[in-house]
Amino acid sequence: MTLSKITEILEATVIVRPADLEDLNIRSACSADLMSDVLYYHSIDSLLITGLTQINVIRTAEIAGTKAIVFVLNKKPDERTVELAGQKKIPLLSTPFCMYTASGKLYQAGLRSSLND
């Protein structure tokens, strides 16, 4: 599923969209607030749906190989977090939906879970 399709389904605001990055193809999703979960069940080309916005979420994403991040409940990260995501070329979105609804809508549209590889 493309990132622009995800943005549309989640009625999301784009916070970071690296300019030279073409529309990403997202293969799977992971809904989590616990960063070790993201690291443990890491998978390539995945979307992270989370309620946390601090800077180490970006570092976790970079290390786990997460392709893009959606913050739920309209949460917005601070400037340093936005800056680091830009540097690492990790797109950031913010959706008004909660993690349950965001997961449900994407699942309904055909996106599936990250598998532990």
């Binding site: 997961s103 699942y107 879970s113």
Partner: peptide, 16 residues
């Protein structure tokens, strides 16, 4: 055994 995204998706479809 399912991860959160998957089970949330399935429950979402059930409760819809």
């Amino acid at each position: 055994s399912m991860p959160a995204f998957e089970i949330a998706g399935k429950i979402y479809l059930l409760l819809k």
